[in-house]
């Protein structure tokens, strides 16, 4: 069990999350997003990435985390490649690339709320904190409709 994986870590409401670094195309400062009326609330808008129109998903809403007080100010977008194309995830801030070993992985606990369950693959136990590993395909395709804000 010496398989090393690299995760691009990011912060969301004091929690540390990670995407497989291979899937992250780039990280940009969030530009002004064009809102999409009638869209599910987790969709925060559209952005123009060098001539390509991408949909931005607000990860806080998608993962049922509390709204940030001074939202949209200085938040970051992670452009992630998934099967259906690229998707932008709105996150609070982006951290380092973290090397983890397969052995530190653990499945999510049973008492995880059902609304978050499909998105969370498990956690990696880091020295001082837990790195939440998200299922990119699930997070980027199935929109969480159960969010109550």
């Amino acid at each position: 069990m010496d398989t090393q994986t690299q995760f691009c870590s990011f912060q969301l409401a004091d929690l540390c999350f990670g995407f497989d670094v291979q899937r992250v195309q780039e990280v940009i400062r969030s530009p002004l997003l064009a809102p999409v009326p009638l869209a599910p609330p987790a969709i925060s808008g559209l952005l123009n990435l060098r001539g390509q129109i991408l949909t931005a998903i607000d990860l806080r809403r998608q993962l049922c985390l509390p709204e940030e007080e001074d939202s949209s100010e200085g938040r970051m977008l992670m452009i992630v490649c998934c099967e259906e194309g690229q998707v932008a995830f709105l996150v609070d801030s982006v951290g380092d690339v973290i090397d983890v070993d397969e052995s530190s992985f653990e499945s999510p606990p049973e008492n995880l709320p059902a609304s978050v369950r499909p998105f969370l693959r498990g956690v990696h136990k880091l020295d001082s904190s837990l790195l939440h590993v998200l299922d990119i395909e699930a997070t980027a395709s199935a929109l969480n409709h159960e969010i109550s804000l």
Binding site: I43, Q52, I53, L54, T55, S141
Partner: peptide, 8 residues
Amino acid sequence: VKPLGHLL
């Protein structure tokens, strides 16, 4: 015209 992503 650009397509909207799969989410929309």
